[in-house]
């Protein structure tokens, strides 16, 4: 979906909000009251354990190359090579240090290329498996990136990444992956917590982008 550059540099959708949201649809219908009550009862009484130093957790990634784990937390970025038993903090340059590491996306072709969304530093990128980091936010309308997704990079489509920026909307970066462009406002509920490109054909030559939100799960064909 095209965007227009307005005076003052603000990127806004070129068509009204009511239309640009039309391609996002709730994946499942709202469950009945009886189901909700049953679920509430079945979950009652379970509690989470205490924190183990890594702090409030936001995001999790399993590397396809060696099975190592990455987590994004309130306290930093951590990696584990023993399936999560112990964690080592990943060094981030001081100028890119963020308050919270909110989301991950990994290049489907080259797993050493990893993208991280942060609460206050936009998106970061490493191309060497985490040794060196750079800002990857050119074109993003804000610095609070709550969700990232990499499309499957199939041969018929250009490379594409998605980012959800709080209060700004959905952004996409195509082809040479040089600059983010605003796509639209995303699902009708703007509180997106996770994005993933899912290899389920839309019937229109693409696949679906799924969004986890504060009102359930939505999806949109990735051709928009």
């Amino acid at each position: 979906m095209e965007t227009t550059q307005r005076r003052g540099g603000d990127l806004r959708p070129s068509i009204p909000t009511s239309r640009i949201r039309a391609h996002w649809s709730r994946v499942m219908s709202i469950a009945g009251l009886a189901t909700a009550i049953a679920l509430a009862l079945s979950t009652f009484g379970e509690t989470a354990g205490p924190s183990h130093d890594i702090g409030h957790l936001h995001a999790l990634l399993v590397s396809p190359t060696d099975g190592s784990l990455w987590i994004g937390t309130h306290n930093g970025l951590y990696q584990s090579s023993d399936e999560g038993k112990t964690w080592q903090q990943v060094k981030i340059p001081a100028e890119l240090a963020a308050m919270d590491f909110m989301s991950f996306a990994q290049d489907p072709i080259n797993p050493k290329v990893l993208y991280v969304g942060t609460h206050n530093r936009g998106a970061l990128r490493t191309t060497d498996g985490g040794a060196a980091w750079e800002s990857f936010s050119t074109g993003l309308g804000g610095s609070d990136v709550h969700a990232l997704a990499a499309d499957g990079y199939n041969a018929t489509q250009p490379k594409r990444l998605y980012a959800w920026v709080v209060d700004k909307g959905l952004y996409r970066i195509l082809g040479d992956l040089s600059e983010w462009k605003r796509v639209d406002d995303g699902p009708s509920n703007p509180d997106v917590r996770a994005l993933q490109a899912v290899n389920i054909p839309t019937g229109m030559g693409g696949i679906f982008l799924y969004a986890a939100t504060s009102e359930g799960i939505f999806r949109s064909p990735d051709c928009f």
């Binding site: 499942m28 219908s29 709202i30 469950a31 009945g32 189901t35 909700a36 679920l39 509430a40 999790l60 396809p64 509180d191 917590r193 996770a194 994005l195 993933q196 899912v198 290899n199 389920i200 799924y210 969004a211 986890a212 939100t213 504060s214 009102e215 359930g216 799960i217």
Partner: peptide
């Protein structure tokens, strides 16, 4: 259809790499 609690935030989402459904 359905099955998720209503009006609750979904914080996490993942689809299988081999069977995306």
């Amino acid at each position: 259809m359905g099955g998720l609690p209503t009006n609750k935030t979904v914080y996490a989402f993942a689809a299988s790499p081999t069977n995306p459904k």
